[in-house]
Amino acid sequence: MDQILQGDERLDYLLAEDLRIIQSPSVFSFSLDAVLLAKFAYVPIRSGKIVDLCTGNGAIPLFLSARTNARIIGIELQERLADMAKRSVTYNRLEHQIDILQNNVIRIADVIGYEKYDTITCNPPYFPAIEASEKNIREHVAIARHEIHLTLEQAVRSASELAKQGGKVAFVHRPGRLLDIVTAMRANRLEPKRIRFVYPKEGKEANTLLIEGIKDGKPDLKVLPPLYVYRADGEYTEEVRQMLYGEEN
């Protein structure tokens, strides 16, 4: 245990997948958005190749490993987060399936290959770059949340460069960026095919957007039923409980 953890890191359970993940309250912990994207994205079940961009501490590759036997590559710019992800992969004995690369998402296809992958997932930074004085004091979190090193358009372009023709690319973002993400997808040969809005609870505005496109696909967008995170009593809805814990009420 001492060798696998560093500093204030802890091992958290991914209950639905029966896996563990290394997290740090001062450096990085994954959010519900990672869970939502991992459950939303299409993945080939038996074989194939998947890339997760902006992988952070490796949550999405770990989630996806429970759904598929495909090879998964996680790309993370920050060395500390990539190292956490690598150690989580090792702890769960998933080295045969998951590779974590510490590298820039921009032009990552130069490194791992163009148009070779069945599925690309991406949980990119949501917020525009801002002055240093206004950023979250934790640099790791600021880089993960703000477009300091990666813009939305750059993330979409890189995803398209990786996806093979007919491959699927899925993003999680904020509803306020819907037109930006659709515009960027279409400019990069990714035709939006499925979209789902996530709401904190019924009666509230959507605060999360899930969208999936197909490389060189034909126009035919399906808007899926809304996903509500909490019930009126503040407890998770049945669908979200299933995602997080693998159980239903």
Rank of each mutant, 00 (worst) to 15 (best):
A38L: 09
A163Q: 09
R87F: 10
I22F: 09
E212C: 00
V240D: 07
D18P: 02
D18G: 02
I22H: 04
D2H: 05
E76I: 07
L64S: 07
T68L: 06
L19S: 02
S31E: 10
L36E: 09
D118N: 13
R87V: 04
K201C: 02
R87A: 07
E212V: 01
L77N: 04
D110F: 06
L11Y: 12
R87N: 08
T121E: 13
I45R: 14
A82F: 02
A159G: 10
T68N: 02
G113R: 04
I195Q: 06
L221D: 07
V27H: 10
L178Q: 05
L64M: 09
N207G: 00
E212D: 09
A155K: 05
Q242T: 02
A163W: 12
D12M: 05
Y245W: 11
A155Q: 07
L179D: 14
A144Y: 10
E139D: 08
K222I: 15
Y228T: 05
S24A: 02
E202F: 00
Q102G: 02
V223K: 09
K135M: 15
A82D: 10
D233E: 01
L227N: 07
T183Q: 12
V169E: 12
G166N: 11
P128F: 07
A16D: 03
E248Q: 03
R87T: 08
G246N: 04
A232T: 13
L94H: 05
Q165I: 15
A206P: 06
R196Y: 04
D2V: 01
D52S: 08
V27D: 13
R107W: 05
L11H: 00
T90I: 15
C54V: 06
D99F: 04
A187D: 13
K86R: 15
R157C: 04
L221R: 01
L81Q: 08
A129N: 13
Y245E: 11
D99E: 15
V156P: 02
Y228Q: 08
P192H: 01
E17N: 00
L94A: 04
Y91T: 04
R67T: 06
R87P: 07
